[in-house]
Structure formats: C-alpha cells, structure tokens
C-alpha cells in the first residue's frame, strides 16, 4: 500500500492538482462575482469555450500567447456583457438566458474554429506557455517544484483568490456588489446603481471565465478541441455553491475537486483502479447537490439571486 501511496503522492501529483485547479479557480471566481451581484450565469460553459477558441486562434495567428490571453479575456467580458444585457438591463430570466448564451457561444466557437482552421485530421496546436520557476521559492523541497515552477497564469490564479476576497469584502465596489446581490432595493435607496454594479460584476465574471478558457487552450492542452471545456463550466457552478459564494472557500473547493480529478487520472494511469474513474468525476456534482440540501436552511446564497431588478416596480 505504501508503494501505491508513493506512486500517487509525488511532486508531479501536486503539480497536477495545481494545474487542474487553475482554470477552475478562474471560472469559479468569475461565477462567484456574478452570483454575488445576483446574476446566475449559466452561460459559463459556452463563454469558456468561446474564449478558449478565440484566445487560441489569436495566439496561433499572431504568434503571441499574451495577445491570445488578452483576446480570451475580452471575449469573455463581451459575452458577460451580453448576458448582463439580457438579464440585468432587460430583466429576462437568468437560467434560460444562461442556457441561451451557452448554446450561442459554443455554436459560435465551433463554427468559427471550423471556418478558420478547416477540418484537419490532427488539430493544429501552438507552442503553449512554458513554466516560469520563481527564483528561490522554486528551490523549496516538494512545494517549490509543485507550486513555484508553474505557468504565469497559475501564479495569477493564486494571486486572484486573495485579490477577489479583498475586492469583495474590503472595497466599496465589493460592498456594492454584495448589496445588489442581497437587497437591491436597499442598495438603490443607498444610491448604489443596481444595474451598473450588476453589469460590472457579470462582465468581470465573464473576463475571469475567459482567463479559464485561455488557460485550457494555451497552457494545459495547447490546442483547441470541441471537448476542451467538457463540463468544467458546470463544475464551476457546483463549486461556487459548494464554496458558499466565498472566494476562499470556492478556491478551496476547486483545489479539492482538482485533487479528486488528479487522483482518478493517476489511478487510471497506474491501472490500480477497480473503481470506474467516472465515479470520481461525479463526486463534485453529487457532493454539491447534497450540500445544497444541508445549506438551504442557513440561506447563504445571495438573496436576490435569479431576481431581476426594475426600479419602477415596487
């Protein structure tokens, strides 16, 4: 048994967890900002896919990976704005719009990818990001190679978590976001523009989802495939709930999921698993559904989630 443990818990395993967690952390933080402002964004799955595709295309055509990241972020923000236009400005039902945004963005991603790259037997790939070891820190045993010899985007994700917590809990804008998500009427009376704040939060959320997509096609896989997101957006929806709409807990949930995912990958590779790997992949969803049943009494979800705001309606 100890041999099995050694095989599983190596530096490479820790590094794998961090890498799997990175896009999830971006996506989860993005969804969290949106939901804290009272807007459920089920467009996340499609937004990640379209940004992943747009970023990959920009990087592949220009040769600049960072330009690719920028394009992915802009596309994510743009799709966030689209979702906000429908749900915040027009007050349309958030879940149906979200599904609409996902269907539209994934369709557009497939369409444009096929149009630009044609049908190739081997999907075109790019020279993705290289790991950038941080001097000194990367010399720490185990933690160094696992955490501090990663892609720059990974470091950005690590910084994004405390930054998101700071913005949400310690800045006036974060207070506005929480207010419009909890009690838009009161926020409005206090002079906070509900519409503008929600727009900003959903757009910021979309930009973070774009970063998640960028990581997938420019650091993790270095290619775009139609299954490149494969449910990670839905995972993020689950993680936000599981992480109780809090940046730290959500990031923790992303790490936990990444651990389970990395574990199932290892078990598959080592041929140890008599347990089907799908059982592991199901876990975050089952946990979240069960957790929702327990959490519902404590009412941690933003109160105004799913509720459109119209100033003239009292």
């Amino acid at each position: 048994m100890s041999a099995v443990f050694e095989q599983i818990f190596q530096v490479g395993f820790l590094a794998a967890i961090i890498r799997i967690a990175t896009p999830l952390a971006f996506a989860t933080l993005g969804e969290m900002f949106s939901e804290r402002a009272g807007v459920l964004n089920l467009g996340i799955e499609g937004i990640m896919l379209l940004s992943a595709m747009a970023g990959f295309t920009a990087a592949s055509l220009s040769g600049s990976l960072w330009l690719g990241v920028l394009v992915a972020v802009l596309v994510g923000a743009l799709m966030g704005a689209l979702h906000a236009l429908f749900t915040v400005a027009l007050g349309l039902s958030q879940h149906v719009c979200g599904i609409g945004v996902t269907l539209f963005s994934s369709g557009l991603a497939y369409f444009l990818y096929r149009l630009i790259f044609g049908q190739q037997s081997v999907p075109p790939s790019i020279d993705g990001f290289k790991t950038v070891p941080i001097p000194l820190l990367s010399d720490i045993p185990i933690l160094g190679p696992a955490v501090f010899s990663q892609f720059t985007l990974v470091y950005m994700a690590i910084i994004a978590v405390p930054l998101a917590a700071f913005v949400l809990y310690r800045t006036p804008w974060g207070l506005s976001v929480r207010m419009v998500g909890e009690n838009p009427r009161a926020a409005d009376s206090a002079g906070v523009s509900v519409i503008a704040t929600r727009f900003q939060a959903v757009i910021l959320g979309g930009a973070l989802m774009g970063l998640a997509g960028a990581f997938l096609t420019m650091a993790q896989f270095n290619a775009f495939t139609f299954g490149v997101v494969s449910g990670r957006g839905w995972v993020a929806i689950a993680l936000v709930v599981f992480g109780r709409w809090d940046p730290w807990r959500s990031a923790g949930a992303a790490l936990l999921f990444a651990f389970v995912d990395a574990l199932q990958l290892r078990m598959q590779a080592s041929g140890l698993g008599h347990i089907p790997y799908e059982a592991f992949l199901m876990l975050p969803f089952i946990f979240t559904i069960v957790a929702m049943a327990f959490m519902s009494r404590s009412a941690v979800a933003p109160s105004a989630l799913l509720k459109p705001f119209r100033r003239e309606e009292r």
């Binding site: 459920l40 839905w234 929806i237 799908e278 979240t288 929702m292 049943a293 519902s296 799913l306």
Partner: peptide
C-alpha cells in the same frame, strides 16, 4: 424533491444532475 423538502434551487440541482447521469452512462 430537494426543492419541496429542502428549498434547494431546482435550476442548479437539475443542471448538475445532467453531469452525474452522463458520467454514470460513461461508467
């Protein structure tokens, strides 16, 4: 049932179940 008994939001729970069933099918 989750909505009726525990007031769980049906949008998210029904959406997440899709993934559970999909992985069960794959298994």
């Amino acid at each position: 049932t989750l909505r009726v008994k525990f007031k769980v939001d049906d949008v998210v729970s029904s959406l997440l179940l899709n993934s559970v069933i999909y992985y069960a099918l794959m298994a």
